[in-house]
Design a protein around this nucleic acid. Structure first.
Length: 803
DNA sequence: AGCACGCCGACT
DNA sequence: GTCGGCGTGCTC
């Protein structure tokens, strides 16, 4: 076993295969599969993943591994397998697949240094020469700032300077420095008295140690005595103290106390649902369950008690929730039940915090992970259950490479570990519910709310009617009336509006011109606070013009309403109401989300106004009214899932009301009250919606009847984009069977983003065994061309948004 | 991705 | 005859 196959950290399709390296004798016992190593590659050093150890190679002249980067493998055999499968099925690089399974702290970082050569100094400008003489070696970027990249390349070529690459390990454990007495107390005292002159501070420190003969951290001593690190180091030099570092976990929840909870008695419904899950846990068999339970029916308690069972068997559990920073309440429930056994992984954590949580898992210090999408790759080795809450959420599909779906990964891992996968939702995705109907998944249902209260009363208000009555405000009479009622009673209100900013677009009333982003094919959104118009796609922003840029007219009007405008209108209509606004603009800062929700929970506000981020998981007893300001914003986006998403959103947000003692009411305002997703959401009739929508999908040849692949091409040259897309479509038509539908080439729904034109095609199919192979060829074909022209193509299997 | 190699135009 | 532009192909 002297040879290692390595996937190198060079993200191109040309290098997407293992390279063999000799293992130097000194590392022979150390290097294992799944470790990261540093290897020489085409004249420089790069990081790589060892995927195999072997005795022979077909390559004759092998180079040697420079050194390992890990003491223990970061990917075990299961994860290596999972990564290969992921790369295969989503058409991404093996390297990219491995990287997505690891915390970002373990991603290699390279640093480029320059050093001075013999008589190079004579040729260099003073600024650079002086710096190099002083420091011997500087970062390439520093040099570039001084003299420009072109000059540096020249210098390298002429041999005046040398370039050196270094692979940096970003994985920084947080270390805390301690000083402890270097010996036991009696010899310590002896040594102190025999030591030659000690400084004043040093004496002080020695005295302190004698009074408290233990290790003390540098920060503790600094707090007590001022900056004494120098003196501590002197004491170390003369052998009295010894410096040590301990790893310390960063705990994102360290300031929170989680009230301990105990298992609640289950209802008859819940008992019936949990029984088959417990059985599969006991018998160690893999099965996928779809837990369809209406909002407030107690799905979480089923999760908790299943996990309890798993932990008792000495196994581990993974729980996925949609973007967890949004639901601190969820974390609380898991930490409350399982305390220290829980690790939390989500995008709100810093790189260091994610790394620490990951290490707790790797070291088996926890048995439960609660996290967002990527937590599905938690390096557990003995999984007893995988739970995906709010199974229908689109965030489980990553919308950048690698475009994997957490549900697929969960099922793959469930098979390997022979354990159940539990998908839970009040509004299951059509895909999953259809599978449950076919018996591929086992359906478990909870049809009753736990509090024995019915679902909240839902009223649909026709906003066209309001307009006819002369009401031009954002609020119907009914909603306003109900809001005032709640304010008097001191109960709380949630208002949902699917649009941030102030108004959705800015139009000239004289010429009809709508302000557009210069880089994207998208209208600009008006933000009143800053008096700017912004593009929500590329971030472009500019001052709102006073006159129309095309015709010069001053009659500029703002159309549509965003959260900012509603907030303002609320201030006028109900000046006594206290409002909290929650959207990407007010929750950008770390922890802001949690703070706003906490304030609402403590009744520091009467109204919580927000975009769809408020629709999920909120569980506050005092909310008795939910208002949806415009239910149809989502309905008319060009996406075959628009109805499904609208139905889900309305159902979810309605579920926020009346979860506890007080009965809840919901008011849905819409311009299309007759639409079935609004009518059926009003009745909370999922099954009827399912049947209706399935009929439409069947007719339109959409999922779950057909599988979908989306191919997009983008570049700043429109002709090139069209030509490339046409070429791809011709290629596909030639290679795929005639049962496959190929739609396009067509303009993407957003025709231009960040100055790049976008074209796309859609592939619909039921069964096409060689599809992956053909798609891989498309990809390879265009990676050759990519170098020349820079056209980027993306292939998305089972896309979730068609934008 | 980065790097060498090689071919061709521009200039000492 | 040399320097430097960048298209091409390779990296164990």
């Amino acid at each position: 076993m002297k040879i290692a196959s390595v996937i190198v950290d060079v993200p191109t399709y040309g290098t997407n295969k293992p390279f063999d390296y000799l293992i130097p004798e000194k590392w022979e016992d150390v290097i294992q599969r799944g470790m990261r190593v540093i290897v020489p590659f085409s004249g420089r050093r790069v990081q790589g993943f060892v995927i195999q150890l072997k005795d022979e190679s077909t390559v004759s002249e092998l180079k040697e591994i420079v050194e390992p980067m890990d003491v223990h493998p970061v990917l075990n055999d299961e994860l290596l397998h999972l990564g290969n499968k992921l790369a295969d099925e989503t058409l991404c690089l093996t390297l990219t697949a491995y990287q997505v399974m690891l915390p970002p702290a373990l991603k290699a970082k390279y640093e480029k240094y320059i050093t001075l050569n013999e008589d190079g100094i004579r040729h260099l400008p003073d600024s650079l020469g002086k710096l190099l003489l002083e420091k011997e070696e500087i970062l390439w970027n520093e040099g570039e700032k001084l003299v420009g990249a072109a000059f540096l390349y020249k210098g390298v070529k002429k041999g005046w300077i040398d370039v050196r690459y270094e692979v940096k390990d970003k994985g920084r454990k947080k270390l805390v420095e301690y000083f402890r007495p270097a010996m036991d107390r009696p010899p310590f005292i002896e040594n102190v008295s025999s030591a030659s002159r000690l400084g004043k501070v040093q004496k002080l420190l020695i005295e302190f140690y004698l009074s408290d003969f233990r290790p003390h951290s540098t920060s503790e001593l600094t707090n007590r005595f001022g900056n004494v690190r120098g003196s501590l180091l002197s004491l170390e030099r003369i052998g009295l103290l010894k410096k040590e570092s301990f790893e310390q976990y960063r705990d994102p929840y360290q300031h929170r106390v989680f009230a301990k909870t105990t298992p609640l008695p289950l209802t008859v419904d819940q008992k019936r649902a949990i029984h088959p899950i417990i059985q599969t846990i006991e018998k160690n068999i893999h099965r996928v369950f779809l837990l369809y339970g209406i909002t407030g029916s107690g799905k979480t308690e089923i999760y908790l008690q299943s996990i309890q069972q798993v932990i008792q068997k000495g196994k581990e559990a993974i729980v996925l929730v949609p973007e967890i920073s949004l639901t601190p309440q969820m974390v609380e429930r898991f930490k409350g039940r399982f305390g220290e056994k829980v690790a939390v992984l989500h995008s709100g954590l810093s790189i260091g915090e994610k790394y620490d949580e990951w290490r707790k898992i790797q070291r088996k210090e926890v048995q439960v992970v609660v996290g967002a999408r990527s937590a599905i790759f938690a390096p557990f080795e003995n999984i007893g259950i995988i739970i995906i809450d709010e199974e229908h959420e689109t965030t489980y599909k990553q919308d950048e490479t690698p475009r994997y779906h957490a549900r697929d990964m969960a099922i793959e891992r469930g098979k390997i570990h022979r354990c159940p996968v539990l998908l839970g939702s009040a509004t299951p995705s059509l895909e999953s519910f259809a599978r449950a109907q076919k018996g591929v998944y086992q359906l478990l249902t909870l049809e009753k709310r736990m509090n024995e209260k019915g679902l909240p009363e839902v009223e649909v208000v026709d906003m066209r009617e309001e307009l006819r009555k002369g009401n031009r405000s954002m609020f119907s009479e009914l909603l306003l009336e109900k809001m005032m009622e709640r304010l008097l009673k001191g109960e709380q209100i949630v208002l949902l509006l699917n649009r941030r900013g102030y108004s959705s677009f800015v139009m000239c009333r004289d010429c009809g011109n709508v302000l557009q982003c210069p880089n994207c094919e998208i209208s600009l959104t008006y933000h009143k606070v800053s008096n700017e118009v912004k593009c929500h796609y590329c971030g472009y922003e500019t001052r709102t013009p006073n006159e129309c840029p095309t015709c010069g007219s001053e009659h500029i009007r703002f159309f549509g309403s965003g959260t900012q405008k509603v907030e303002e209108e609320l201030g006028k209509l109900l000046p006594e109401a206290r409002t909290i606004r929650m959207d990407v603009d007010t929750t950008r800062k770390k922890g802001a989300h949690e703070k706003l929700l906490e304030a609402f929970q403590q009744k520091k506000a009467d109204i919580l106004l927000g975009t769809q981020m408020i629709a999920k998981g909120l569980d506050f007893p005092n909310i008795t009214l939910v208002g949806v300001l415009t239910a149809d914003t989502m309905l008319h986006i060009p996406d075959f899932r628009a109805s499904e998403k609208t139905f889900q959103l309305l159902t979810q947000v309605s579920g926020r009301a009346g979860r506890h003692e007080l009965p809840g009411e919901v008011v849905i305002q819409t311009y299309t009250p007759e639409h079935y997703s609004i009518q059926l959401a009003k009745n909370q009739d999922y099954r009827q919606f399912y049947l209706r929508e399935m009929g439409i999908r069947k007719n339109g040849q959409y999922p779950p009847y057909y599988y979908l692949v989306q191919i997009q091409v983008s570049h700043d040259n429109l002709q090139l984009v069209v030509a490339t897309m046409e070429k791809i479509v011709r290629f596909l038509r030639a290679r795929l069977s005639n049962r496959v539908l190929i739609l396009g080439p067509s303009v993407a729904p957003i025709a231009k983003i960040k100055n790049k034109y976008r074209y796309q095609c859609l592939i619909k199919y039921k069964k096409e065994p060689n599809l992956l192979e053909v798609l891989r060829k498309v990809q390879e074909m265009f990676h050759r061309n990519q170098n020349q022209k820079g056209v980027s193509i993306t292939i998305d299997l089972n896309p979730y948004t068609l934008m």
